[in-house]
Amino acid sequence: MLTLVYVLVLGGIFFLFIAAIGVVRMPDLYNRMHATSKAATLGVGLILVAVAVFYWDLSVAARALATLAFIVLTAPVAAHALGRAAYLSGVKPCEDTYIDELAGHYQKNHRLESVEVKPPAPDPSE
């Protein structure tokens, strides 16, 4: 049982390291978010599972697994909110970016259209 805990902890640390190195090495914001939303989630998850296995007790396991479920459910939501906000505030994808089907789909009022729409003519009363 203790061996399993050690393996889980080692795996968790490995993936957190991957996330950390990825955040430094990746060329732009969107690729960095790939590192934090996937690898970091898995890293924390493995360590929380290790806690649950180590104590093997209902109250501890319930708390650890509830935290795990919360992180797995919220990490993608946080990444989505941040990615959308960054795109709207004008953070450009890096030069390697091969295709950008989102370009030109945002309206002035942050509505997102499914087909490309020309921005409306400026309102003369303004």
């Binding site: 969107y30 790939h34 939303s37 996937k38 990615g83 994808p93 509505r111 997102l112 259209e113 499914s114």
Partner: peptide, 30 residues
Amino acid sequence: LANLITLTPGTLSLDVSSDRRVLYVHGMFV
């Protein structure tokens, strides 16, 4: 679906269009 896309290999969901017809996805290996 958006959560799963973020957690699966190489893709990250960015936004849903206001009429819910299109989901914009950032991919790492497109």
